[in-house]
Write a protein that binds this DNA or RNA. Structure first.
Lengths: 222, 222
DNA sequence: GTCTATAATTAGATAGAC
DNA sequence: GTCTATCTAATTATAGAC
């Protein structure tokens, strides 16, 4: 990564700050363009020329602002995962069941708003690579553990569908994200627009009903 | 692979049949190799050289046996979809519920045995292309319609989870296939082997329980 | 920081000897 | 049918003028 080492004064006069702002902007434009190209064609299938063109920049600017295509890819994922964190942030004071419901709705909302994250993860997950190891070990695993612990608690309380924690992650993410990751297919096959708010809500409702079925004890208590 | 030098007689002596057999064999080896490369890297990311290497052939043989990379890709899908049909063939005399249960178990079994089909479909579904149009219109749509009709029947009978037919396809396929499509990720993240028969069975059992929950009427009748 | 030019490699496809 | 050589185009990355 190219750090903007100030050529200006000791540490940042007005001009240096203005230039830093411009640098941050072009970097973000490149990340936004790369996110789409990586999501559409996979890492190998995406070309830095197409990314630069989409960003309104020249191809060598990628190697200037990022050390390599791979570093650009990592920047893409860090940005998208930050947005995922915002969409699934846990609110304090909620019951385990409410927490899980919020997580499910957050995952669906994120998949609809930013299908690129799931597209990229799905592309990468199909074959072993150094990128996949980085992604799983440093990003996915830390985010997954709290959800699996929560699931075990719900299962013990009889409030969760009969799915083992080992299977939960892929069953839930698959059920929640494929419609959006493969939205172009859904448009052709079903003639629907997966990002339509009414569909997003129906989708989330269905998943909550399936993964968090009504608790028999609650029904008895009513 | 060296074939008998025979140019053989006018139309189909023993030697011609032997050559046809050899041709069919190399074609299938190329299809099997292509299936893995397309599944791992997507259409754009897969190279014909890597495919030929995996098949123990030379790169120009692909253009000799298939008109183009795209025709090879279509041959891959026709083979895999034929196997899917075999795995999900409907048995006569079963109730709608039993038929749906068999379909769910067949989809899971196919995903575990041939993860390449779902990997390729997932790669293609992320962006519009002529290949996607061909895939959806000529292959996916005809196979999907009977399943959706069956689902509506089950929903009307109160035997199906509360998912609209429009959402069913992607929710079910996502829940059933992501674990296998992204098996390399699951191995790293969870330390499990998704093709393990015990996991395949537990996975299918969980999906059947979630998508075909016990019918309240049946419970009342017991 | 940008942009032109280009190096070094690889892509899909073809020609022609065998 | 196979296989070597090769064509054209596209790839990531770099050099250097501005």
């Amino acid at each position: 990564m190219q750090v903007s080492t100030a050529t200006a004064g000791p540490s940042g006069g007005p001009r240096a700050r203005s230039r830093d702002r411009a640098t941050a902007e072009i970097r973000d434009r490149l990340v936004e363009a790369a996110l789409v190209e990586f999501a559409n064609h996979g890492f190998d299938g995406a070309s830095t020329r197409a990314i630069a063109r989409r960003a309104g920049a020249h191809q060598p600017q990628i190697n200037y602002h990022f050390a390599s295509k791979e570093e650009l890819w990592k920047a893409v994922l860090l940005k998208l995962l930050g947005e995922l964190d915002a969409a699934t942030a846990i609110a304090p004071g909620l019951s385990p069941r409410e927490t899980m419901e919020r997580a499910i709705r957050g995952v669906v909302a994120m998949g609809a708003a930013r299908p690129e994250l799931n597209r990229i993860m799905i592309h990468e997950g199909t074959h072993p690579s150094d990128r996949l190891v980085w992604l799983v070990e440093t990003q996915v695993a830390p985010r997954t553990r709290p959800m699996l612990a929560l699931w075990e608690k719900l299962r013990a309380a009889g409030e969760a569908a009969p799915i083992s924690p080992e299977l939960l992650y892929h069953v839930l993410i698959g059920a929640a994200s494929l419609l959006h990751a493969n939205a172009p297919e859904a448009r052709l096959l079903l003639g629907i627009e997966p990002s339509d708010p009414a569909i997003v809500e129906a989708h989330a409702d269905a998943l909550v009903a399936m993964f968090l079925p009504p608790n028999p004890k609650d029904r008895a208590a009513r």
